[in-house]
Design a protein around this nucleic acid. Structure first.
Lengths: 195, 195
DNA sequence: GGTTAAGGCATACGCGCCGTATGTCAACTC
DNA sequence: GAGTTGACATACGGCGCGTATGCCTTAACC
């Protein structure tokens, strides 16, 4: 019967996550009040500390959630690509476009690294990074990409993409900056392609 | 005689900056106490708020200082390069090595963007970014680099470099990760070189 | 050179927020 | 159906930031 207890517990956890996500997106991690946030979810800080440990734990959970969604969208973008190389570019384009969402920028790209440290050390293991690493590994194994260190290349590519997104978002005309960023990214990636 | 007044004021400002830099590096922006920080400089928060406005203003000043030092070192590295293309790689290598300094990572790469927003919008104008932009512009003008958007390329390259530094620093064996990051960076940049 | 204006810095206060310790009540166990 | 567990609420303490206010030294000016 799944237990009446575990059911409401899970529901509360979900509501807490949603409220935290909204609060972190709107006010940033430091500016978000846990009292307000929990009240918005119809609960108190007691529930929060019981389920997430502390404020950092809450952020980690929110980051993991968004990161998972991003990885899924990137996978979908890659799936509809012609070949594996095109999949790499499609993934990057997907990341950049997703990072234009203020919620993603604020939580995953800015507060995440500042509070939780380097993404490769996140408890959630950074699904996005794993995604590009897999793609790069496939390309190298197939001989499509030069024999570069997979970890390094994946990190550089994803770093370039996410930084490009920050630039596009901060620019005065994002709609004109976006294609330029994508062009430059495609060219840079070309340097890694086998000759 | 330069004024006895302005002299001590400037000295106090310098000591405050140094104390803030040390405190931000050790405890992070959020964890650094302004009371402790100012006491370490032999002053109180009054001096701080008078000279820097608020905690953010203090961070902005510290970031501007470190950023300036980084840009100077990058320029020096570029100056001793064979040609302009080599200068681009030398600059990147310099950035990556500088970012292995925990102080630089913590303050400029993590807390800086999270608290002050995108680097291109910093009050200090981000000397590092301007440096690579200039280098890229020279390369494009000379026909050494393909006719890519200068802003976009500079942002991608510097983003990749700084992200590579975060990866190297977080890796278990930074001394082996570093050359791999540099290799991958050189290859990626190669994609931008004119054919 | 004495008075006045100004500005750099210290002191005092209030408020919000986080983390923990403690309490309570409903749900599962036997 | 009594005991126990565990999810969540309540209460408390402390810290840290920002501002308002006051003092005291330096520079300006007649």
């Amino acid at each position: 019967m799944a237990g009446r207890r575990a059911e409401t517990t899970e529901a509360n956890r979900t509501r807490l996550l949603a409220a935290a996500r909204a609060a972190f997106a709107e006010h940033g991690y430091a500016g978000a009040s846990m009292d307000e946030l929990t009240a918005a979810a119809g609960l108190t800080r007691g529930a929060l500390y019981h389920g997430f440990g502390d404020k950092r734990g809450l952020l980690a959970a929110v980051v993991a959630q968004i990161d998972g969604e991003m990885a899924a969208r990137a996978r979908a973008a890659a799936a509809s690509a012609r070949d594996d190389w095109d999949a790499l570019l499609a993934e990057a384009a997907a990341y950049i476009e997703m990072a234009l969402d203020p919620e993603v920028r604020r939580i995953v790209l800015l507060d995440g690294p500042a509070v939780l440290g380097d993404p490769s050390r996140w408890p959630s293991q950074n699904a996005c990074l794993a995604e590009t690493r897999d793609t790069v590994a496939r390309l190298v194994a197939a001989g499509t990409m030069r024999a570069v260190d997979v970890e390094a290349a994946a990190r550089l590519l994803s770093g370039a993409a996410l930084n490009a997104a920050l630039w596009v978002a901060a620019s005065e005309a994002p709609d004109v900056a976006l294609p330029r960023a994508l062009d430059a990214y495609a060219l840079m990636a070309e340097g890694l392609r086998a000759r």
